[in-house]
Design a binder for these strands. Structure first.
Lengths: 223, 223
DNA sequence: ATTACTAAGTTACGAGTAA
DNA sequence: TTTACTCGTAACTTAGTAA
């Protein structure tokens, strides 16, 4: 997202456009942003196109309201600032247990991962990940987590293929300590994968669909 | 300030550059910001020129630290987001009493102001403002206050000159209710002016140099 | 490896203006 | 009054490089 559009979105939020439609002309917006009416108008059109705001044409002025997508972007921004100025905090997710397709087992059978996990985390992971699906709305938290260094497990190659780098964060699932593993690059999945020396599914005594509460510690690194 | 520079400044803050020098190459910054190495390099130069960061050239990479000016800008941004998502909050200042140059008395002798104050605030202001000097570091709070609508007293003209619009906010000075008056446009002064139906200086029993504690209510409008 | 210059390409801006 | 188009110009970006 372009930085200048974020600026405008924030301005609209300050004017109360998150929970209400706000009646504001492009000229008024231009004055707030110290730009021209034309540019403000263009920004509004761009935000609309990106589905970050909705517009209706009022009798004279336009009525603008920020969409959920738009509010999500601002929330993420807010969380970033919070992390800059507030004490390091934990990030919470509510999700529910799902079955992996066995990929976890496949990956955790790779020596390249096992050895690095053992070296950095001090345990040999149970062969298989605990998979938790998180709601779409939490995706901004995920993006935030990825901004933090965590503990990086380097990529490696076998004779067959390359295994990408992953990032690890200390976490708890239903108050039980374990380690979140995220791909270091690439896209966001709605499935979080956790590893542990134990069989987490048994230890937690949970089955598919059960709600789980996750806390990710983004500050303290493993070891 | 340009929106894209703010973005970079925030990125540096997330990397811990507010309280420490951070060793980071322009290429690494470029990857974080999803732009080119050249652009990241240019941003760094611009931020340095604006005195928002300091730089040293390390053995290979540059060492970057955010200056107080830079941190102030980020803090203000943070406060804006806070106001978007948190419950309306009051803004506090600590300052000390100073003498006006008699301008307050002059302005408050103008019918154009008196009538509008009376109409909107329900009282005839005591002829003279209470002037409080606030520290330089609080200037970002002032900028934030100005983002809120408050109650606007319109500009008016006399035969001699034009008197600019002002914004009013409910406030307390040492727990005594009064009204903050700020010029609606133009620059920030380090002197806050308060009006009240009473002679505040007598009512509060304070003299020049005495510390005063101010709370500004940016949400609730007068009447 | 770095940083950062130049030059050319791309995008954004806003005056003028229509609807 | 509005919103938003066109289009000339200003600003920003980046490939190619030098140091």
């Amino acid at each position: 997202m372009k930085a200048y559009l974020l600026q405008m979105l924030k301005e609209l939020a300050l004017l109360g456009a998150i929970n209400n439609r706000v009646e504001i002309s492009s000229l008024e917006l231009a004055n707030q942003l110290e730009t021209s009416q034309q540019t403000a108008s263009r920004y509004v059109l761009e935000l609309d196109k990106l589905d970050l705001i909705t517009r209706e044409m009022g009798i004279k002025k336009q009525l603008i309201q920020i969409t959920e997508n738009g509010a999500d972007i601002l929330k993420e921004e807010y969380m970033q600032y919070k992390h800059i100025f507030e004490l390091p905090q934990k990030i919470r997710f509510d999700g529910h247990l799902v079955s992996g397709m066995g990929e976890g087992t496949y990956y955790l059978a790779q020596k390249g991962y096992i050895n690095q996990f053992h070296h950095h985390c001090g345990f040999k992971p149970f062969p298989g990940t605990l998979n938790v699906k998180i709601p779409q709305i939490e995706k901004n938290k995920l993006r935030l987590i990825k901004k933090f260094p965590g503990l990086e497990i380097e990529e490696f190659e076998t004779t067959n293929r390359t295994f990408g780098a992953v990032k690890c964060f200390n976490a708890t699932v239903n108050e039980t300590e374990c380690v979140l593993v995220l791909p270091a690059r690439g896209h966001y999945s709605k499935i979080l994968e956790f590893i542990s020396p134990d069989n987490l599914r048994k230890k937690l005594d949970i089955k598919d669909g059960d709600p789980v509460h996750i806390i990710i510690n983004i500050e303290k690194q493993i070891e």
